[in-house]
Nucleic acid binder design. Structure first.
Lengths: 120, 120
DNA sequence: CCGTTCTAGATGTAGGGTGCACCTAGGCGG
DNA sequence: CCGCCTAGGTGCACCCTACATCTAGAACGG
């Protein structure tokens, strides 16, 4: 999706990027470049590559993931990331947050529909 | 709700504040202090007063709302805000954004449930 | 051999939004 | 006079993000 012209056109939750990465890493270890493609299929169509790498480094620093270098047969070496127990717990928290957020968005939308008389 | 300890514990969409204020103003003109109370009932439990006033001023600057001073019988003068046509259109956009966001959050949660085998 | 493209990772910088602390000021009750 | 409620506001630091730019290995074509 397009970058925000006004701030109301694009508003995923803060650190949604981290939540997505943790979820993808729950499905198995991976590296930044691959996660970038996957994250783009997970709603963040135009996710920033720099942001992915930065998030991964930050999460490694917070010990939500561990990382090591792995050579690749078809390109430069990769930095492979693996979810830690702390990361797994952080993901649980993040998913609960996401659920709460989704419910509040639904409430807001319902209220809008009530005011405008628009049925869902 | 508590302030964020780690960034994954509290993640409403960017500019959710603006969306809430526009919705509340759709229900009728109001002023900052009152909007602050209402916004706190609309999910943003611990909304920051400064943030409310700042958002309102910013939206007035963007001509999404118009504002004028009105004396109050029981306290200092109030700055009353009214939604403009542009503001109404911005709200439509914001609500569509909220719907898209909610759907993506649901997708993420579903995926998490799939991976963990947890039923909804 | 050189240029291009794909893979892979990373930094620099600016800007918006938020959280927290703090400030001004009117009006009212004790 | 003091404290509290109403009402509006500023300053500052931090976080996250968007965008541009950079390095570098490997493969493929000319």
């Amino acid at each position: 999706m397009r970058p925000p012209a006004t701030s109301l056109e694009w508003g995923m939750p803060r650190s949604y990027m981290r939540t997505c990465l943790l979820l993808l890493l729950l499905e198995g270890p991976s590296h930044g470049y691959e996660l970038l493609q996957e994250v783009r299929l997970l709603g963040l169509d135009s996710a920033d590559a720099g942001g992915v790498y930065r998030s991964l480094r930050a999460m490694a620093h917070d010990e939500l993931v561990t990382a090591w270098w792995e050579p690749s047969e078809l390109g430069p070496a990769r930095r492979t990331y693996l979810l830690t127990d702390a990361g797994r717990e952080a993901l649980d928290v993040a998913v609960e947050t996401a659920q709460r957020t989704a419910r509040q968005l639904d409430a807001l939308i319902d209220r809008f529909d009530d005011v405008t008389g628009r049925p869902t």
